[in-house]
Every structure is written in structure tokens, then in C-alpha cells.
């Protein structure tokens, strides 16, 4: 998507970002909702505005791709959606709860409940087995349950690799452990940051199919990607440039999952 093709959505134009074919925001269905969200950082004697007046929402069960060049504000946006950071101004609601008003401790708890992270570099703890890596997310959420963790690994096709250390798994397998870990607490939102960025074509396909499967089962997926083909799997793209949000309205460029995965 080029900037010229996209419609600048700031402030009043944000209504285009919902799933409503009329272009109106459906806040009642939104699992993620940003209104005039700005994030500024203190720089060397100046203020850097990493995200400016972002307004859009994502409804439950939607698959959204966030795209944009380096420095465009993707990480800042993902930090806030992932409850790792709070806006300088504006309102950010996750599951209808304004996270901007939360304390750091409340945000930690909220993050464990609401967000499942899938990382480009997997980020598995090297001295824990696949099963224990999944259970780690349970540990910080509530109570560990070995049976549930095994089931999650079976779901991603790693039922026979549960006792392997990350160093004994391929990149694709590690990413699947990461997905199982993201799913284990049944969060309403899956936040995938370049989920196939470190994978070969075969494993990209496996992970893409897994995400497709999760989406079919009703998970909300917010995926940051540079890969146009992966972005094409999403129902909608949110593009960022220089801290500003550009959204494709519903009906923008869409690629069917079958076609996209076929290409992979």
C-alpha cells in the first residue's frame, strides 16, 4: 500500500477504521479501541512524537495487519496495544477497559489476561523445555497446569516435542511453542510481531496456517509485518508512517487466505 493510495485517518476520519461497511466505528464490538492516542518521548532537549493522534478500533475476531517502515511508530503502537506502555494522551481501551488510567501493576496483570504475544525471535527461555516455556505464561497468569500446556503444544503439532529444549527445536517448532504459549491463557487478543520474519518458506506456511486456524476459531489477531503476503492474510491493514496511522477501509486490498497460503 502506498501512502497516496491510503486515506489519512486522523481524528475525525477515524470512523473508516471499523468493520462497519458504512465506515462507522462499532465501538460496542471493539476489542481494541484507540481515540486520539498520542505517545511522546522526551529526547535530548526535545520531545519525540512516536505516535500522533491515532484513532481506530479493531473488533473481536478481526485479523489486522499493522505495516509501515522502520521508525513509523509500529513498535510504539504495539507496545500500547500490548499494554507494555501507556499513551501520553488519548484513550486506549482493550476489551472496553481504558488502559491509560491503569497503574503499572494493574497493566502487568491486565496484559497477562488479555494479550498473547507471538514474537519474531520466539523468545523462549533457553533452559526451560517446550512444555515449561508454555507453562511459564501460566505461571505469570495464575496456576501452572501441565495437562493444559501439553494440549496447547499438541494443538500446534508439537505433542511429541514437549520435553525438548529450545536449542533442540527448529525455528518453526520454536515459533509454534511461542504460539502455544500465547494461546495457553486463552487471551482475547493475539499480538504477533513479525511472526514469520525468522522462518523459511515451509515454516512460514505452517505458521500462517496456524494463524489462519486461530482466526477461524474466533481469535482476534493483531499482526505487525513487513511481508506483504502475510499482510495479505489479514482482513485489514493499518499502515503507519511518521507516527501517523493510515487505515484501509473495509473492502480495501484483501487476499483470501487460501491464495495467500498457496503463495507461501
Amino acid at each position: 500500500m502506498s501512502v497516496s493510495e491510503a486515506k489519512v485517518v486522523t481524528g475525525q476520519l477515524a470512523n473508516l477504521s471499523g468493520n462497519d461497511p458504512s465506515g462507522n466505528t462499532r465501538d460496542d464490538c471493539a476489542v481494541i479501541s484507540l481515540k486520539h492516542v498520542t505517545r511522546e518521548y522526551a529526547g535530548h532537549g526535545s520531545v519525540v512524537r512516536a505516535l500522533e493522534d491515532a484513532t481506530f478500533s479493531i473488533v473481536a475476531g478481526e485479523w489486522v495487519a499493522i505495516t509501515g517502515p522502520s521508525g513509523s511508530g509500529k513498535s510504539t503502537l504495539v507496545n500500547m496495544i500490548g499494554c507494555l506502555d501507556r499513551p501520553t494522551s488519548g484513550e486506549l481501551k482493550i476489551d472496553n477497559i481504558n488502559t491509560a488510567a491503569m497503574t503499572a501493576t494493574e497493566l502487568d496483570r491486565f496484559r497477562a489476561d488479555k494479550i498473547g504475544f507471538i514474537f519474531q525471535q520466539f523468545h523462549l527461555i533457553p533452559y526451560l523445555s517446550a512444555l515449561e516455556n508454555v507453562m511459564l505464561a501460566q505461571y505469570f497468569h495464575s496456576m501452572t497446569d501441565e495437562t493444559e500446556a501439553k494440549t496447547a503444544l499438541q494443538r500446534v503439532g508439537l505433542g511429541d516435542r514437549i520435553s525438548h529444549l529450545p536449542s533442540e527445536l527448529s525455528g518453526g517448532e520454536q515459533q509454534r511453542v511461542c504460539i502455544a504459549r500465547a494461546l495457553i491463557n486463552n487471551p482475547p487478543i493475539l499480538l504477533a510481531d513479525e511472526p514469520t520474519g525468522n522462518l523459511d518458506a515451509a515454516n512460514q506456511k505452517i505458521v500462517a496456517e496456524l494463524l489462519q486456524d486461530l482466526h477461524r476459531n474466533g481469535h482476534t489477531i493483531v499482526m505487525v509485518t513487513h511481508d506483504p503476503e502475510m499482510a495479505g492474510l489479514a482482513q485489514r491493514r493499518i499502515a503507519l508512517s511518521h507516527g501517523k496511522v493510515f487505515c484501509h477501509p473495509v473492502g480495501g486490498p484483501m487476499v483470501t487466505l487460501r491464495r495467500a497460503t498457496d503463495r507461501l
Binding site: R109, D113, I125, L128, L131, E132, M135, L136, Q138, Y139, F140, H141, S142, M143, T144, D145, E146, A149
Partner: peptide, 16 residues
């Protein structure tokens, strides 16, 4: 919300 706890195979001391 339940408090983070220790049970099953993964424990704080085990991780340590």
C-alpha cells in the same frame, strides 16, 4: 483474578 502461584512442574525454585 488468581494470584500467580506454584504448582505442576514449573516452580520458582526450579526455574532458579
Amino acid at each position: 483474578m488468581t494470584k500467580p502461584g506454584l504448582s505442576g512442574k514449573l516452580s520458582l525454585f526450579g526455574m532458579l
